[in-house]
Amino acid sequence: MSTASLAATAYQQIKLELDTFHYAPGDRFSENEVSGRLGMSRTPVREALVRLQREGYISVLPKLGWVVNAIDFEVFAQLYDVRAVLECAAADLLCACTDTAERLQALTAIWCVPDAERLREHARVSLLDEAFHLDLVQAAGNLEMARIHRDLTDRIRVVRRLEFTREDRIGTTYAEHARILQALLARDAAQARTLLQTHIAVSRDEVQKITVHALQAARRQRLSQAHVA
């Protein structure tokens, strides 16, 4: 297996462990530790860790190894506010276009579908949800706005990763995305902005609740394991 393939495998495994809080915020670990556990050399493991560092999951401590980043919900709430501003501005631009339907055709084909055609796989829906918001801003045609929005998306991905571990979030997201698209297709900018603001605010609050619950469950499991040991 090539180094790139090994690095991709290492990335997926470590990310899963971060998502399930095998490594919790504040935990430290070394490249040697991960390499030994995964049965890989340090090179692909380091590449995987650097990628996770760029995505905001972990940080490197000189001579001390790696540490899982703390989750600052106040900062993330501010980032969600900025996201709402950008997406509402994109909605205004889209509603002013003469080819709105053409620009949104691909998104409409994904989200405006009957319940029987909706995807159920959490990981896949999560990727499509992120792409929905990125593509929506991209479709508005302002390249700088799209660039800033992509950077913002990279920063909040670390907390959004758990949103679709709850089944009800999938159906809710499909319904809300469809309503947003319908407002945009009708060129009702005020309605589109209202729907986007509500959608993003609810997503922010749900992500925080799901993350806090997952953290608490992980801590209880650790305490239970420590007690047994």
Rank of each mutant, 00 (worst) to 15 (best):
residue 206 E to N: 11
residue 87 E to D: 09
residue 144 E to G: 11
residue 136 L to M: 05
residue 79 L to I: 01
residue 116 A to F: 10
residue 146 A to Q: 02
residue 214 A to T: 07
residue 165 T to A: 10
residue 187 R to M: 03
residue 225 Q to A: 13
residue 215 L to V: 03
residue 149 H to W: 05
residue 16 L to N: 14
residue 47 E to T: 14
residue 141 G to F: 06
residue 49 L to D: 04
residue 63 K to A: 14
residue 84 A to P: 04
residue 148 I to F: 11
residue 180 I to N: 05
residue 227 H to W: 15
residue 156 I to K: 01
residue 60 V to T: 15
residue 140 A to S: 08
residue 78 Q to W: 07
residue 149 H to M: 08
residue 81 D to S: 12
residue 72 D to F: 08
residue 151 D to I: 04
residue 61 L to V: 09
residue 31 E to L: 09
residue 154 D to R: 15
residue 159 V to E: 00
residue 137 V to T: 00
residue 11 Y to P: 06
residue 191 Q to C: 12
residue 12 Q to D: 12
residue 205 D to V: 01
residue 181 L to D: 04
residue 126 S to K: 06
residue 8 A to Y: 08
residue 85 V to S: 06
residue 85 V to F: 13
residue 72 D to E: 11
residue 101 A to C: 09
residue 146 A to F: 09
residue 46 R to F: 10
residue 97 C to W: 14
residue 158 V to I: 04
residue 176 E to W: 11
residue 97 C to G: 15
residue 109 A to R: 12
residue 202 V to S: 07
residue 27 D to G: 04
residue 176 E to R: 11
residue 7 A to D: 07
residue 171 G to S: 06
residue 6 L to D: 12
residue 63 K to R: 15
residue 173 T to D: 09
residue 63 K to M: 06
residue 26 G to S: 02
residue 200 I to Q: 01
residue 37 R to E: 13
